[in-house]
């Protein structure tokens, strides 16, 4: 298939979100999940952190404060994205304008969902994360730059490597469609199926 436009670098203002174990219920509360489309989830993202129960903005929440209202990168606490498999969390973050989260480790399903939707999740050491948290907490609005090809993050005088597996790196840079790509291996899938014994194929009773 034809590649979409390549994304080699992600650049933007970063917001600090140092809480550990931010789960997908917090990223996308369940009341926004009653939908059959991927659209309209930007408002739901971090809804209970961004808004109070009357729907008013919480002025103390980082993404409601200048310059972080323009943030497109988050520097996050350990184990970000744990919990439910809901891809709505990632769709919503993208719709809110978040292009990357930098952290020390992410929950597995969230990581895979992110890759499918062009949300980069560079994994850095705890000390780099802490430096970046400090950098992001400064209200001067200085930008962080994530070089996907070279797997490095730069921010003013900070320059640090990050971890990302090859397949995720390729997927993010090329922005490809996994389903269509995999169908190019249809012959291999048929071969595998041909090798299955009759007792190895489930047929669900309707």
């Amino acid at each position: 298939m034809k590649d979409k436009q390549m994304t080699k670098t992600i650049k933007g203002i970063a917001a600090p979100l140092p809480l550990a174990n931010v789960d997908t219920d917090v990223i996308m509360p369940k009341r926004f999940l009653i939908t059959i489309t991927r659209e309209g989830l930007g408002n739901g993202t971090f809804a209970d952190l961004r808004f109070d129960s009357a729907g008013e903005q919480r002025p103390e929440f980082i993404l409601n404060k200048s310059p972080w209202t323009r943030a497109s990168i988050l520097v996050v606490g350990d184990n970000f994205g744990c919990g439910s498999s809901r891809e709505h969390a990632v769709w919503g973050m993208r719709q809110l304008g978040i292009n990357a989260c930098i952290g020390t480790g992410f929950a597995g399903i969230f990581y895979d969902n992110a890759r499918k939707n062009g949300l980069a999740l560079p994994v850095v050491s705890p000390s780099t994360r802490d430096l970046l948290l400090q950098f992001a907490s400064d209200a001067s609005g200085n930008e962080v730059s994530i070089d996907l090809e070279r797997r490095t993050i730069t921010a003013a005088d900070i320059s640090a490597p990050f971890e990302m597996d090859d397949a995720t790196q390729t997927a993010l840079i090329r922005g490809r469609d996994d389903t269509l790509d995999s169908l190019e291996h249809a012959a291999a899938i048929r071969d595998y199926e041909a090798g299955l014994k009759s007792k190895m194929r489930v047929s669900v009773i309707k």
Binding site: D112, N113, A167, D178, T179, S182, I189
Partner: peptide
């Protein structure tokens, strides 16, 4: 194991998943 919605689409269309060994 649990998968996201894009992967649900992938399984429906191909009966497979792209997988990274843990």
């Amino acid at each position: 194991f649990g998968i996201g919605t894009s992967e649900v689409e992938h399984v429906l269309a191909t009966q497979t998943l792209r997988y990274k060994r843990m």
